[in-house]
Design a protein around this nucleic acid. Structure first.
Lengths: 238, 238
DNA sequence: ACTGCTTTGTTCATTATTGCAACTAACTTG
DNA sequence: CAAGTTAGTTGCAATAATGAACAAAGCAGT
């Protein structure tokens, strides 16, 4: 034991690692998942579109999640009701400056929230149109999209891409956009009913369309942050 | 943009954060999940049982996963075929020394692998008998156990708790120990068959018991590391 | 060698879930 | 007010999961 403490250098003698957070902010535009990117101010990759991210400030952030919330707020003006840790990416290879570590988070917001933030520097890019991203941001985004697809098959996650109120057909098209395939209407409504997260808004119908108006729904109050799960996936995808 | 670079301190002026890895090494003993713990050498919490962990060495570790593999090998003598990133725990509150960050991994091994490593300092504690753990290790373990339970319901994850060869009834009892409830035999066999990860060992039967001997199986060669998934969970768990 | 006991592995009928198509409802437009 | 369109529901057929019952195959004791 004494030996071990001799062979292992103590904390302060070790090369410190710079810790960052990166946020994959996803939204739906014209039926396609888009990710929010910003032009980098500094080298390396100055001027290149990249994920919103920044250093963890040990002095002001209570933890990495706090750093992610702060970074997202500062860089995009957005406070996302849904923000979940994705994974931590690290190593010598990902940043030309050397060994780095990024704790990544992903957030889902309806696109009117991005519009309301009114930050013209925030660029939305379709997730199948991404190219030339710096660092391992392409891989981070791919991981986030995969996570969202996996979770959407058996949870209420996609409701965070909808606004405060929405119709069931709208919600279904959001699920279909994420899963990338059509869902049976009856099965979909059964699953949503089973999740038990929505309540109809009394007397609120989607007007203006040349057909029967749809009932508007909202998330039940207690489901502010967390998800509801089904035991079976929405549709077989093997 | 110029303004922003003025208000944001550059990397080298910031307080560096010490990064660690912690590994939740799980195994099954007498039908109960156990976690491997070690007595801490140093303050804080010297002498207290804690998760195997250590500093990330930027100079020698290619990435955090590498650091986790090295740490697990050095502290327990074990190289786990299955090792997956769990989550990153961070913040001011978790370590009395100050702001810290730990990238955590979890591993599953059959208990004879732990015996074979022959490290008497490695202590196995049942996951429902844990108490007095330092830092946020209790929460880290709880997160790992939850992850293992969730994944086991729709994947082949539990096979990593079995040895090189095993019978289907043995594997079923492993699933039942993890999920904490009995599984229907027919449903279980159908799911395993669907996963298509096992092959019978020709002519190898489990002998010595006073009843019909069971066929022995092994993991198909190509499933060294990765999991196979079902689209539906093993049993309804509302 | 035969009987009884135990667990493995399978078959079959019952029950639950899902997917499809047809239907009714309710609105707008011309 | 008829035609067009989508919302929402109902019933049925196809598919999948469950549970009980059965057959197979060993050991132990007689």
């Amino acid at each position: 034991m004494i030996l071990r403490s001799a062979t292992r250098p103590v904390a302060h003698a070790m090369s410190p690692i710079i810790c960052t957070v990166d946020i994959v902010l996803l939204t739906l535009q014209r039926g396609m998942l888009h990710v929010a990117l910003l032009k980098r101010d500094h080298a390396p990759f100055a001027g290149v579109l990249a994920l919103p991210g920044g250093y963890v400030h040990a002095a002001e952030d209570a933890d990495a999640r706090d750093a992610a919330e702060r970074t997202l707020r500062e860089k995009t003006g957005i406070v996302s009701p849904y923000l979940e840790q994705l994974a931590t990416f690290s190593g010598l290879a990902r940043d030309p400056r050397g060994w780095s570590l990024s704790v990544t988070y992903y957030a889902l917001v309806p696109d009117d929230v991005i519009a309301a933030a009114n930050r013209p520097e925030v660029v939305l890019v379709a997730i199948d149109k991404l190219r030339g991203l710096p660092f391992d941001h392409q891989q981070i985004i791919a991981t986030a999209v995969q996570r969202v697809r996996d979770k959407s098959a058996y949870s209420s996650l996609p409701v965070y891409l909808c606004g405060k109120c929405f119709t069931l057909p709208q919600l279904q098209s959001v699920y279909e956009a994420i899963l990338g395939e059509p869902i049976n209407k009856v099965s979909f409504r059964r699953k949503i009913d089973e999740l038990d997260i929505l309540e109809p808004i009394e007397g609120a119908l989607e007007a203006g369309k040349a057909h029967r108006p749809a009932q508007m729904y909202r998330l039940k109050p207690r489901y502010g942050q967390h998800l509801s799960l089904t035991n079976r996936a929405l549709n077989a995808r093997s």
